[in-house]
Design a protein around this nucleic acid. Sequence first.
DNA 1: GCCGTACACATCTACTTGTC
DNA 2: GACAAGTAGATGTGTACGGC
Length: 285
Amino acid sequence: MRLKFIEPLMPTLVEKPPEGDGWTHEVKFDGYRSLIIKDEEGVRIFTRRGLDWTAKYRDLAKEAGDLDVDSAIIDGEVIVLNDAGLSDFGALRKAISRRQHDLYFVAFDLLHINGLDIRDMPLEERREILAEMIPVGQHIQFSQALPGEARVIFHLIDQAGMEGMVSKRRDSKYRSGMSTNWLKAKCYTVEEYGLLGVEREPGKPAFALMADRKTGRYVGSAFINSSRAIRERLWERVQEHAGPPPKGMKRPSTQWVKPGIIARVKHLRGEEDLRHASLQDFREE
DNA sequence: GCCGTACACATCTACTTGTC
DNA sequence: GACAAGTAGATGTGTACGGC
């Protein structure tokens, strides 16, 4: 029987991980959510939107073909580890085209095995079966649950420089789409950057273009989703400090500013450039 | 071969719409 | 009114293609 793609369960973003014995916690990896399907027609690997990326993940597909099951649907994340042993999103995108052997698939749930749809089984039982079917030391690995209290685990993950953690209800069934049975808590950091300008078009969200304060190098843009008072005050300052665009930067809808406005930006940790960034506040030098 | 453009993928948040 | 789900638009990188 040819197994069909199943839309993955999407965790809900929360500030802090949930406490209590009813939850199990895992490391949140920074990569591409993927689904491995193995059946009598072979192995296919899909993105979270159902696109067949088997050709891009050919080495992982080959390894999945060696798993000791007739058929299976495995939910997980394709990642690349950097020198520090942390998942590296930038390296992942390069590895997909050039360094297949750097790719790892971290399996965290099992939806189907040997002809049985097991999505209605409790999470812990699904994961027990999954753990048994994945050999140690390969590029397909099992995502181990982290023992201990949620707040302690979150603190350790933060200290280790990881992206965050995912908490899952131990007895939950697998349901496609957004779910509060899985909660993700991310580790953000807040840093100061120089403001290069504000990109603003009617009807669209505004972005603050940020630069490294030492080098002046453009590092990325941040959503301006702070309070209305801060947004209006920022726009006033931007217009007062209007200046020419930095060399080599062309953005027609951007109001560029002279150096001197410092912005506090909340963003995902562990990357040289800004990702998932939002402007919190600003000041003048 | 080099460069520019278009389009693919992923992520995120803000906003809108639908449901209870 | 509160919450969930869907949509829009931004980021960045890679690939394919056409023109020079």
